[in-house]
């Protein structure tokens, strides 16, 4: 068990980071910390994908001197997925930040509990 975890240390780290990000996003009341948590969570997935695609001793899949054997290159698909994922997470981060900005301007707090309390008071 432990041996497997050490051999696949990239994946282990990715899953740990995912857990940290997930709990931060879920449990923290501060909106900025929630956004940080979300970014940690997404980055952990990219680490996982990148680790899955890499094979030690092979080249990056850029053809320089004619196509070599398929075995000479690492798998380029996960890199493509990571790029797409980064685009998605950047846009989501931007949206969340703008939402936090709107809430902060109106309620002068980033704490979701305090904001909720002030909203309820305002709408009573």
């Amino acid at each position: 068990m432990l041996e497997n975890l050490i051999i696949n240390h990239y994946e282990t780290a990715a899953v740990l980071l995912f857990g940290i990000g997930f709990t931060t996003l879920l449990l923290h009341q501060n909106l900025i910390k929630k956004i940080i948590g979300m970014n940690i969570m997404d980055t952990a997935v990219y680490l996982f994908l990148a680790a899955k695609g890499f094979v030690t001793g092979r080249l990056s899949p850029i053809v320089v001197n004619g196509v070599q054997d398929m075995e000479a290159y690492i798998n380029p698909v996960p890199a493509g997925l990571v790029l797409t994922g980064i685009v998605v997470s950047v846009s989501v981060t931007a949206l969340m930040l703008s939402l936090s900005l709107c809430l902060y301007r109106r309620y002068h707090s980033l704490d979701l509990d305090i904001i909720l309390m002030r909203v309820k008071k305002e709408w009573r």
Binding site: L31, L99, C102, L103, Y107, I115, W123
Partner: peptide, 10 residues
């Protein structure tokens, strides 16, 4: 753009 809808969106 009301307070309630911002909180709902968050």
């Amino acid at each position: 753009q009301t307070g309630r809808s911002y909180v709902a969106a968050a």
